[in-house]
């Protein structure tokens, strides 16, 4: 992919899409890219689908929001429907395998290069811990976008969660493993 990526992340309140967006955009900024992140916000956002818009570019970013995304990550059933406006002919839709049926229902078959079903939820439960589901997703995004160095992402992660890691070192391990798992899932797609 080029040096200009537009990403939409969408999910339910507790799924942590805003923190993923914050970490990615900050990591991009740390690696010398221009980057811009803006959350959606409104009077009824509680209970609604939470959406984050991230742009990473080697030139200045032109507008805070955009219409067609390069990568759309939708993490819940409702999010699959909500992200419809951002999906264009070349957009890659990334989603959790638990909502395969919803994707099929709304989009039919998008084609191999345009959809990526990842078993992140299952993996989080079986191999790491449900609470690092969003970190797996973070890894997937980094893997798919192929733009950021893993070390910059780790740095951004450290800045955000460092104080927690300091209290509990197993937490650090957990997060790094989740990041790696996600990265493997996303890489090369």
């Amino acid at each position: 992919m080029g040096q200009n990526i537009k990403i939409v992340l969408a999910g339910e309140g507790g799924q942590g899409v805003q923190s993923i967006a914050e970490i990615i955009s900050e990591a991009a900024y740390n690696s010398g890219f221009q980057s811009l992140y803006i959350p959606n916000f409104g009077v009824e956002q509680r209970g609604g689908v939470s959406v984050a818009f991230v742009q990473i570019s080697d030139q200045s970013v032109d507008a805070p929001k955009f219409i067609i995304a390069d990568i759309v990550i939708a993490l819940s059933r409702r999010a699959i429907e909500r992200v419809k406006p951002y999906i264009g002919e070349k957009t890659l839709l990334v989603y959790d395998s638990s909502v395969d049926d919803e994707v099929e229902k709304i989009y039919g078959k998008l084609g191999e290069n345009r959809q990526l079903s990842i078993p992140a939820l299952e993996m989080a439960q079986k191999e790491v811990h449900p609470r690092v589901f969003n970190i797996i997703i973070l890894g997937v995004v980094v893997g798919v976008a192929e733009l950021l160095e893993k070390k910059d992402v780790e740095q951004a992660l450290e800045r955000r969660l460092g104080h927690k890691f300091a209290q509990d070192s197993s937490l650090k391990n957990l997060n790094y493993r989740a990041l790696e798992l996600g990265y493997q899932l996303g890489q090369g797609k």
Partner: peptide, 10 residues
């Protein structure tokens, strides 16, 4: 504006 308020950039 609200975009400038809420967005993060360098």
């Amino acid at each position: 504006d609200g975009y400038q308020s809420k967005m993060r950039e360098p």
